Amino acid sequence: MTFVVRAARDEDLAHLYEMAKLTGGGFTNLPPDRSALRAKLERSHAAFAREEEGVEDDLFVLILENTATGEVRGTCQIFTQVGQRHPFYSYRISMLTQHSRELDRTFRAEMLSLTTDLEGSSEVGGLFLHPGERAGGLGLLLARSRYLFIKAHRQRFGDRILAELRGVIDEAGGSPFWDGLAGRFFGMNFQDADAFNAIHGHQFIADLMPKHPIYTAMLSETARAAIGLPHPSGRAAMRMLENEGFAFEKYVDIFDGGPTMTARIDAVRSIRDAQEARVAAIGRDAGTEALVAHGRLSDFRCAFGTVRGADGEIVIDPDCAAAIGADAQSTVLHVARV
C-alpha cells in the first residue's frame, strides 16, 4: 500500500470538511466550515499557479492520498510569509526582576507581552492525519513532505519558519488559557470564540486585548499551567519538530496558549540534509528507506521509497516511482527516513 502527498484539488473539499469535523476544536488552520475551507483551496490554487519566484503571501495545501483506493487520509499546509494580511501576534513569555533593599528581597514576575516578532516568518501548520491511519509513519510523511516542498521551492520562502501547536483543551472542550485571560475581555466562551476564530482568524483577539504586559501571577492556576503546553494529541508533533531542529523560544499562541516552535529554515534537518539526484534506474533491490519527492508546484509529489546510489545518481523502487510520477532520468529530492 503506497501513500503520496500531493497538491490539494477542488474535489478534496468534502474530504477536508470531514477531517475538519474530527479535529475536536482549537484547530485554527482546518476549520469545520465549507466556505472557509473552499477559500483556503482557492488561495492554494493561486499559489500553485504562480510561476514567478520570490516570497509572496502564499498558502499551499497538501493532501495525503492512498494511491490504491484514491482515499484522502490526511492534510497539511505551508504559509510562505505570515503577517502580511493582518499583524501576526504572539505572546512572548518574559521575566521582570525587581529588588527591594528595605525588604532585602528579590521578586521575579513572569509576564506575557503582545508582540509581532515572528511576522514575516514562513509557517508549517494544518497537519491532520485521519485517526484510522495513525500508524506506519504517515504523520512523519505528511510533516516532512513540507520541508522537501520548501527545499524544491526555496526562493519562495524566507529565513525563519514557525509552527504553532494547539494548546491545552479540557474534557468539556474549553481552554483554561482562554478562560483565564482572553475570555475575561470578550464575554465569549472558548467554543464560540473557536468557531469565530476558525472562519475569521484571531485578529479580533489582538484588536481588543490589552496591549500592556500581563502578569501571569494574576491568572488562575489552571491558566498559568497551560501556558506553553501542547494539546496531548500534539506531543508527538512537538517531538518531530524538535527532531527537525525547531525550538520553543517562549512564544505562545494568544488564543489558547499553545507553544510556537521556531527555526531557521536552512537549519531544518530535512531541508539541510535533502539531496538532489538523477534517477539512474528503477528497481527493487534493497536500499535505504527515504522520503522521495518529484515535481514542482502543483506537480509536486512525495512518498516513502527505497534509495541506493551515490554521486548524484540513484535507484528508486517502482512503487515510489509510480507514486511520485518519476522515471529514469527524472530529478528527485530524497532524504533518509530516520
Rank of each mutant, 00 (worst) to 15 (best):
I214T: 08
E249Q: 14
A223D: 06
G234E: 11
H212M: 13
R264C: 00
A198D: 12
M209T: 10
S220V: 01
A206K: 13
F196W: 13
G257P: 07
M261K: 09
A236F: 04
K211R: 15
N197E: 06
A225F: 04
Q191E: 09
N189L: 05
D194T: 03
Q203Y: 12
K211S: 06
P213G: 05
A226F: 06
E276A: 10
R264N: 03
G228K: 09
A247T: 09
A193I: 03
A247F: 05
I214V: 14
A193W: 09
R278G: 03
E221V: 01
A281V: 04
D194S: 08
A206G: 14
D266L: 14
T288N: 10
G287E: 14
V268R: 14
S220N: 04
T288A: 13
M238E: 15
G234I: 00
D192M: 13
F204G: 02
D253N: 07
D192V: 10
T262D: 00
S220P: 04
A247V: 06
R278M: 11
G201H: 12
F248D: 07
F246W: 14
I271M: 06
K211H: 15
A263F: 12
M261C: 03
N189S: 13
G283T: 01
T262P: 03
H200T: 02
D266T: 13
T216Q: 04
E276F: 11
A226Y: 07
A193D: 07
A217R: 14
P232N: 07
A286V: 09
A195D: 02
D256P: 00
A198H: 14
R269Q: 07
F246I: 05
A206V: 04
E244P: 02
I265T: 10
G234L: 01
F190K: 03
A206N: 10
A286H: 14
V279P: 07
P232V: 05
A193C: 06
K250Y: 06
L241C: 10
M240W: 02
